[in-house]
């Protein structure tokens, strides 16, 4: 099923477009990797998909009905979010619990089920023993892991990760890719991840979206595996 569809999308900063007439369908239930060199507009593509940026022209449609009556929940871990908020005066467990707020609304209390979800999310990224630490006391990789745990605690149908492995050691990175693969294969979730290390992640991915620069043609979006894509103004 199509989760997000981009048709002839153009977007840029200043006067020059960085996304130029890209059409792309994202299917649910897949582990999708977005890759490309620096400046290839990977994060921009992600933000357009999520509706955080409005395209200059073209359409972006997020199929919210796909999630059913409970509503679509998207867990998002932006690039370097943990480092930016290093001084945030919060305990690790407070931050991860905040992932449950969307489901709880303004007043509903935390139940034992929610506390279990928070515990499981922290255990899955090997950070449960750090639950009472202040965020600022953690290393860059650990901060990144608790932000992923926060997104997992949302119990999202779609998980969007922008270079989540930044600052993590090899073991933690492989653990993260395995965990995401597990979420997709066993729980039918969709994971979209911006990554630089394609050689490391490709064994776990279903689909790869590569943003590549072609001579005299600007940036192009190439999709391998099951995703369909069309390029150029005529698409």
């Amino acid at each position: 099923m199509i989760l997000s569809s981009m048709q002839n999308v153009v977007f840029g900063y200043g006067n020059e477009p960085v996304i130029d007439h890209i059409s792309l369908d994202i299917h649910s239930g897949e582990f999708i990797g977005i890759t490309g060199p620096n400046g290839a507009a990977k994060t921009t593509l992600l933000k357009l998909m999520l509706g955080l940026l409005r395209p200059w022209s073209g359409t972006v449609t997020l199929n919210k009905e796909w999630a059913g009556n409970r509503g679509l929940r998207i867990g998002y871990v932006p690039q370097q979010v943990a480092s930016f908020n290093a001084g945030f005066p919060s305990k690790v467990i407070e931050l991860v619990r905040s992932g449950c707020y969307q489901r709880l609304g303004l007043f509903r209390r935390f139940t034992a089920e929610q506390e279990d979800i928070v515990k499981r999310s922290l255990e899955q990224v090997d950070m449960w023993e750090y639950r009472n630490r202040r965020i600022g006391e953690l290393s860059g990789g650990q901060k990144q892991r608790i932000c992923i745990a926060r997104a997992l605690a949302q119990e999202p149908q779609v998980l969007v990760l922008d270079e989540p492995a930044t600052g993590m050691d090899l073991e933690s990175r492989i653990g993260l890719y395995r965990l995401m693969r597990h979420y997709v294969s066993k729980h039918g979730r969709t994971v979209i991840m911006v990554t630089h290390g394609l050689e490391e992640t490709s064994p776990y991915l279903d689909t790869v979206i590569s943003l590549e620069r072609k001579e005299n043609e600007g940036w192009k979006c190439l999709v391998t595996n099951s995703c369909s894509a069309h390029f150029g103004p005529e698409a």
């Binding site: 955080l52 929940r73 998002y76 871990v77 932006p78 908020n85 905040s98 707020y101």
Partner: peptide, 21 residues
């Protein structure tokens, strides 16, 4: 008091808060 949960998320990061509803 009433908006403490959305305010916490907004204060931590506006983008994740927006996507989180």
């Amino acid at each position: 008091i009433v908006l403490r949960r959305p305010l916490y998320n907004l204060t931590f990061d506006e983008e994740t808060a927006a996507i989180g509803g």
